[in-house]
Design a protein around this nucleic acid. Structure first.
Lengths: 228, 228
DNA sequence: ATCTAATAACTGACTGGTCAGTTATTTATT
DNA sequence: AATAAATAACTGACCAGTCAGTTATTAGAT
């Protein structure tokens, strides 16, 4: 946890010239504040997080926070919305053009898997879930802008695969949830039980097993499909 | 939200006899307090929950809370531990004796599924996850007393099935996570996004699809299993 | 270049509301 | 009468949010 503070920079100044107590860095502040806020809110939760701590971590005073954000709540919401930008959806369009349903589905899963590999991005699901009681609106937005589009794509791929015979006939809606579930598990688990469990969580192994099981579950019947 | 309060009981007293402002009910209190606490903590989260509200819902005053619990923290922990008692594990032993791995696995899944059907019990996972930052010890205990035993059983069943040819060779550890994931999804989803999504969450349909997909994913290769 | 006025960025001590926890007192029960 | 159960008024710590004052930076004047 390195301090991004510029107060330490005095050694780099020209000798004899005393370093200023602070600098004006209006453009850099918001990003740094978001960064500090994510760390503190993730570690403590919204209510327990102290703005003094966020400010300290961002290398500023609490008063300065209020030059950039109206309130603790506004900061939290702005931070969450910031994390939703440049979303999973960025790569989604490229995948939409996949030649087969199978490839599309796998591509999408890898995309999401890769996203969860970035600790900053994977913090959001846990925060949304944890703070949903206090921020229902945020949950709604996340659902709408992240979950629903991804799920819609999954449903589309499954429907396509079922239609063209790549997959057997399954309920696309419920199956889409099954595709998503292990990713949610990963995001939650890493930030809730990691370090407490008997083995470290192997994200890659889970993803491998997940795709393997999923493709077999979706595989069309060999030949003999009689009524039950 | 009906009040369990006994303050309203005055009408039921014998006519002419004024009802007491309160009664001594030392045995009944803890359960009623747990009940109220679960409601309030679930609705607001630990920090935002007010003990005055818990007390009011339990039909007592805040001071009385402190006759039964040392602190807000102690109340929360006691409540969580209470919810862990009579755990999933109760029915686990019966299932252990299942004749086939398949039956064992399905029995266990139905057990967990049924548990999630009870809104009181299904509140725990969300609470544990949400408050894990402030109560890491609770997360550890839940992992140890609920998750790990269930997961161990799943691993056992899978290993058994792989050994006796019921299932194909899979990684039991990772596959066990895949078995669990949709249940976690259900518990989280119902208490985070329900009412916000485009369709209501159909727990039964998901469970059906989950078992279906899982069994196909575990099914042994038809015949041709040559070395790779 | 150097000085000076104006302004934007920042600080940190302070305030006021909230709520966990305490206690003096009242009420029920034995 | 004695005791246990419960109340409600109280206290004090905590912290979000404020603001009067300070310091860096910029722009204009010389």
């Amino acid at each position: 946890m390195r301090k991004p503070s510029q107060k330490q920079d005095r050694t780099k100044d020209q000798p004899g010239e005393r370093a200023p107590r602070w600098r004006r860095r209006a453009e850099a502040r918001p990003a740094e504040i978001f960064d500090a806020a994510l760390t503190v809110f993730s570690a403590r939760g919204f209510q327990a997080a102290k703005l003094d701590e966020v400010a300290k971590l961002a290398g500023i005073s609490k008063g300065t926070l209020y030059l950039y954000f109206e309130s603790k709540t506004a900061l939290f919401e702005a931070m969450a919305l910031e994390l939703m930008r440049v979303p999973v959806l960025a790569g989604l369009d490229a995948i939409a053009g996949a030649p087969t349903a199978r490839e599309g589905l796998l591509g999408l899963m890898q995309l999401v898997g890769r996203m969860l590999g970035d600790p900053r991005r994977s913090a959001l699901p846990k925060l949304i879930v944890s703070e949903s009681a206090g921020f229902p609106e945020l949950a709604r937005i996340w659902l709408k802008t992240v979950i629903q589009p991804v799920r819609a794509r999954i449903v589309e791929f499954i429907e396509r695969g079922v239609a063209n015979g790549e997959f057997r006939a399954v309920d696309p809606w419920e199956t889409a949830k099954l595709v998503i579930a292990p990713f949610l598990l990963t995001a939650i688990w890493l930030r809730t039980f990691e370090g407490l469990d008997e083995r470290p969580f192997d994200t890659a192994a889970l993803l491998r097993q997940h795709t393997d099981m999923l493709l077999r579950g979706l595989a069309p019947e060999p030949a003999a499909i009689s009524g039950d």
